[in-house]
């Protein structure tokens, strides 16, 4: 805890020092106090936009998780489904999501809908891939144990395969939640009517760089908090997972 804090403090100090020593002007690279001042000038506005980005992220992530888990379970339940749809999924995933953002605006309008859809699109694939990896990595001896106990397909799936896959599922969730925040911001930048992405676009057009930095700092905080919430959830629910991977 002490070392990361020291590293972060040193980096901020270096940045602050550079702006002071070289007299860099605020619209080019704002010093940390400028950013804090910018936040304190309109905290209600910035928090409201943060809330907008957060709700888009969480709604999209929630749908992405549900869809990702369901698709992964279907893919691994029937081999034919996997062979028929997995290449298609890979092809779909290879499309840069940023490129779809303007299309989503055309199809779904300017409200929160295209943003949520983009979040779903960007975060569900890693969840599918990780969950499939987890569900297909059941150790042979556990499979044989289930068979020797005459376990039904359902028992084998829900008592052995699915719990075994959970650490892998969490790998997907951790990747997915970081991507979800990125997805929300990309969507907001392409139709800037709400959220921190919109704040960044508007501050750019008025050369209010400290405001852009304030929005970026809030985004980073959002991302970090969501990521560590998932890490905490994993430690709480799967205390055995780290022993398995070690």
């Amino acid at each position: 805890m002490a070392l990361p804090a020291a590293g972060a403090t040193a980096a901020v100090g270096l940045w602050w020092g550079t702006t002071v020593i070289f007299g860099i002007r605020s619209f080019f690279l704002p010093a940390p106090p400028d950013i804090i001042a910018s936040f304190r000038a309109q905290p209600a506005y910035l928090l409201r936009e943060t809330w907008a980005t957060l709700t888009e992220t969480l709604l999209g992530f929630g749908i992405g998780v549900a869809a990702g888990l369901a698709i992964a379970m279907m893919l691994t339940a029937w081999r034919a489904v996997e062979r028929a749809t997995f290449p298609l999924l890979v092809a779909l995933n290879s499309i840069p999501k940023v490129a779809v953002a303007p299309l989503l605006v055309v199809w779904l309008g300017y409200g929160p809908k295209p943003k949520i859809v983009l979040v779903v699109l960007i975060c569900f694939f890693p969840i599918v891939v990780s969950t499939v990896a987890g569900l297909t990595s059941t150790p042979a001896d556990l499979g044989e144990l289930a068979r020797s106990l005459s376990a039904s397909w359902w028992q084998g799936y829900f008592k052995v395969r699915l719990p075994w896959a959970l650490p892998q599922v969490f790998v997907g969730l951790k990747l997915g939640v970081s991507l979800a925040v990125i997805g929300a911001v990309v969507a907001e930048i392409s139709s800037p009517n709400q959220g921190l992405g919109a704040v960044i676009v508007l501050s750019g057009s008025s050369l209010d760089t400290p405001l852009a930095f304030a929005a970026i700092v809030l985004l980073a905080l959002l991302s970090i908090v969501l990521f560590y919430l998932i890490v905490a959830l994993e430690r709480l629910l799967l205390p055995w997972a780290r022993a398995i991977s070690a």
Binding site: L145, S148, A151, K159, P163, L238, W240
Partner: peptide, 29 residues
Amino acid sequence: RDVALMFQRPALLPWRSVLANVLLPVEMH
């Protein structure tokens, strides 16, 4: 059901307590 098998490796379910692992065959049946 009246034939039990024991493997080279313990093959315990890592998320279940020792007691719950022992009771697994009861549950499966």
